[in-house]
Structure formats: C-alpha cells, structure tokens
C-alpha cells in the first residue's frame, strides 16, 4: 500500500496550483513577482531606449522622418566638426571646478568633524543650495552676475572699482569660470554632507589614541580620516568628473542656450537634436559622450588603484621585512 501510494505520488502530473502553494513555489513566484516590475521598468525606460538611440546614431533622420542609413558618418562628424568637439574642451573648466568643489567640501567637512559651534546650522546653510532647482539657480545667478547688481555691489563694498570689474558673463575669458562657480556653489554642500557622514563613522577612539600619541589635527586628518573615507572621496570624485562632462544647466539657463562661447557638449547636443533636428548626429554625440565617460571612469579607477596600491605595497613590504627579521631571530635562537 505504502509503496503504491509513493509511486502514485511521484507519477502524479504536475499541478501548477499545488506547486504554487508549496513553499518552493511561493518562493519562486515572489521572487519573480517582485523583480519583474523593476526589471520591466528598467528595460522599457532604460535599455530599450538606449538600444534605439544606438540604432538612431547610424541614420540620417529627424524625429519623424528617416532619410537613410549613413553608417559611421555621424560619428565621424562628431569628431570632425570643430564646434562639437571644441565644446568638449569646455568640460575642463567644469572638471577644474569639480576639483575645487571637492577640496572645499573636504576642508569644510573636516572642520565640522572636529567640532564647530552651530555646526548643524552652517551645514544646513551650505547644503541648502543643493535643494534649489537648477533652473531657479540659473535665474538667481543671472541677476547675481548682471552689471551693477549683487556681485558687483558686494565687490564695490570691499573696495573694488566698478570700472575695473569684468563683465562676468560677457567677457569670454571669464564667463565659463562664472558658470562653473555656480555649479560649485550648488554641489559643494552636498559633497560636504557626504564627507561628514563618512567621517562620523570613523571610530572616535582612534583620534583619542592618536592625540595621546601626540598627533596634531593635520596628522589625524592625513593618517586616520582620509584613509577611512577614501571610498567616499573616490565616489564623489567620479560623480563630479562625469557630472562635469555633462554640464548643462548653467550654460543653458544663465547664458540662454549657451551663447557667448559657453555651449558645453550637452548644450550643443540639445541644439543639434531639438533645434536642427539632426537626431542621428545627436544620438552619435550621446554615445560618444557615454564612451568618454566610461573611459574617464576607468582611468580614475586605475589611477586610484595605483595610488592606494602603493600604500598597501609599503605595508606588505614592511610585513615581509618584519617576517624576515623574525625568521633571522628564530634562526639565531635555533643556532644557539
């Protein structure tokens, strides 16, 4: 009887309902159920459009009409056209700004970490710009930089003569710096808050121990704080550099569409895609930018690996030396 029942059970045809009610079935169904929605969203709104864009980049087309397959012509144009490729150089301004921004954020975060009266208030003030919408910031700075307005007035208070001040947005030698300054103003607070968060997680007893050993604040920063937060520093740097490659709001809003030599790669892309409706060329530009961002990120990773590897190598070397010394001592002892 028992064996008959057993064989019966094993031969019973697959019953979906029963399977679905079983523990294993429930597990599988829940996993599928929970992951299918995000995956579907990811696919429809990220990967599928991306594949389409990659496809567009090989065609000469606008939004509604395809004029024909042109192969790599769009890519060649991206590199050959001086106005497009030159706009990439403007990113250097923003990269420079990113470095300044990170240094400033790191400096302020360190100060906050060592304790400041009313620290939370100041932190809030500095983080606040990040919460303002980028378009609003654009309009704020449009007036900020207007001749004889905020910036000029403040500079006049501290003794500058209006005659000697440049036109912040008109002079092509300085207007990109003015624009970069707005993006530094916006993002440094956010970087700072991230740094403070990472620094807070460092064990306080380490500082105490270091202090007892006679380390000053700079040494504490250099040997305890910085190594502990290097992942966050790296993350912030990568985000800032890739962000500076795709700078868009400041030139677009403040300079009304990137006039006066401030058209960054993104602004140029926007113009090509929407004003001139060369969708193929714009898609090619986007893909080239993607590749550039990949390359820059990989380079940064390699760079940091190299920098931190050196430190580890020293440690390893030291350990090896110590081992050697110990081995020698042991050998001596054994010889005795």
């Amino acid at each position: 009887m028992a064996s008959a029942a057993k064989t019966n059970k094993s031969e019973r045809p697959f019953n979906f309902l029963r399977w679905a009610k079983s523990r294993k079935g429930q597990q599988t169904l829940i996993i599928i159920g929970f992951s299918i929605i995000p995956l579907l969203l990811l696919f429809t709104f990220t990967y599928f459009p991306f594949v389409k864009m990659a496809q567009f980049s090989f065609y000469d087309r606008n939004y509604i009409k395809v004029r024909g397959f042109v192969g790599l012509k769009n890519y060649i144009d991206v590199f050959k056209r001086p106005d497009i490729f030159k706009s990439l150089w403007l990113s250097l301004y923003y990269m420079g700004g990113a470095v300044v921004q990170l240094a400033l954020a790191l400096y302020l975060a360190t100060i906050f970490c060592f304790g400041v009266k009313g620290g939370n208030f100041f932190k809030g003030c500095m983080f606040f710009p990040y919460l303002i919408n980028g378009i609003a910031i654009g309009f704020i700075f449009k007036f900020f930089y207007t001749r004889g307005f905020v910036l000029d007035t403040v500079l006049q208070w501290i003794g500058f003569d209006l005659e000697n001040l440049p036109y912040w947005l008109r002079d092509t030698s300085i207007n990109n710096v003015s624009l970069v300054a707005t993006s530094v103003w916006k993002y440094f607070g956010q970087n700072m808050v991230l740094f403070v968060g990472a620094m807070m997680s460092v064990d306080a007893s380490l500082y105490e121990a270091a202090e007892l050993d006679g380390a000053n604040k700079w040494q504490q920063f250099k040997y305890i704080m910085l190594p502990s937060i290097k992942t966050i520093v790296m993350l912030n740097l990568i985000m800032s550099i890739t962000g500076s490659l795709s700078a868009f709001e400041p030139p677009y809003v403040i300079m009304s569409g990137g006039g006066n030599g401030t058209a960054t790669y993104f602004v140029k892309m926007h113009e090509v895609a929407h004003t001139s409706q060369k969708l193929g060329l714009a898609s090619a530009m986007a893909i080239v930018l993607l590749i550039i961002i990949f390359i820059v990120t990989i380079l940064q990773k390699l760079f940091f690996k190299y920098v931190f590897k050196n430190a580890e190598d020293e440690d390893k070397g030291a350990a090896a030396k110590r081992e050697k010394k110990l081995a020698k001592l042991r050998a001596k002892e054994a010889a005795r």
Binding site: N62, R170, G258, G259, G261, A263, V272, T275, S276, K278
Partner: peptide, 24 residues
C-alpha cells in the same frame, strides 16, 4: 534649415546671438 543648422525662422537664436557676440 536642419541640414545647414542655420534654422531661419525656426529657432536659430544662437545664430543671431553670435552676430551680437561678433559685434562685441
């Protein structure tokens, strides 16, 4: 307009802005 990217009567604002910049 699209092919030349000059965009006459079709949002070619940066083209005319450039004349101002050149004048300055």
């Amino acid at each position: 307009n699209a092919e030349s990217e000059l965009n006459f009567n079709a949002g070619g604002d940066s083209r005319v802005q450039r004349i101002v910049e050149a004048g300055a």
